[in-house]
Amino acid sequence: MVLDMEGAKSWTLASIGALSSWSLAQSSIGAALHRDIILWTGLSIDPLLILLPVITGASLLLAQEKGAIKTAALLGFLYFLPTVGGVKIWEVPAYTITSSLLFLALTLFIYMEETSREAKRLEKAGFEPDELSEVFLWNLKTSSAFVVLGFLMALALQLRSGFGTSSYGPLPLLSLPLLAVLLGAFVAFHGRRSEGEARKLRKVAKVYMVAGDTFEVSKKEITMDSTFLLLEGGSPVARTVFLELDEGAPDSITLRSPWDLKTLWKVYEYEDGDTKYVLLSQR
């Protein structure tokens, strides 16, 4: 495996499971379970000791079956469920602290998942596993700094409010629209920057198909909205075909070899400096 994140992801998932188990143990479900245990065994056992292995074990199994993200979302919902309609006042500090840990784990979890998924995709595409491992771990560490910064900010607010027991004004709630405005401004800024500055256009077509190993483009037909290219020569082999197209080529192109036929569409567009790059591939 290129980037062995599985261990770290399992631990993070187990932590989220532990927080959900704790939350359930505080609820009426936990109390009912406690009662039943006394009835069955005559022993007073904390329901958390029962729920913890059951939920973490089940979540790890579920992650393999249904996917890690769905399992993490389900565990988050289980954590939140007992709090619907309010919690006892003496439980507020505990929920305040555990919720921070929960959000920290969920945020880190998404980065682990995304990083390992991307690393695996590139490994399949033929990139060196060692290099991928090194670069993506470094990237994950850098990304974690942002998450930790957010955690420290949340912690500061919690400390200031006595972990939710004293009022600290409407700042946390107001920060939501503030965040939305900030995000909107950044997105708008980036969007505006990349519009209408390019003077050169570079159009390329890329697709994985069966074509000759030494093919040449032998025929070209251009219609109003499509270009047709015939790739001839060489022995058949499944390969990446990468072709540079004319600036005026339409955004749809059909490549035909004696063994395969692919229609490509514009899938990506990016401007860097004065050049606009357009990639045509399969959707």
């Binding site: 709090t83 929920y95 946390p172 965040l179």
Partner: peptide, 15 residues
């Protein structure tokens, strides 16, 4: 839930 700590915690992904 009426637990303001959840809103504080939401600043982690938001920030």
């Amino acid at each position: 839930s009426g637990v303001p700590g959840f809103a504080y915690a939401a600043l982690i992904p938001g920030t």
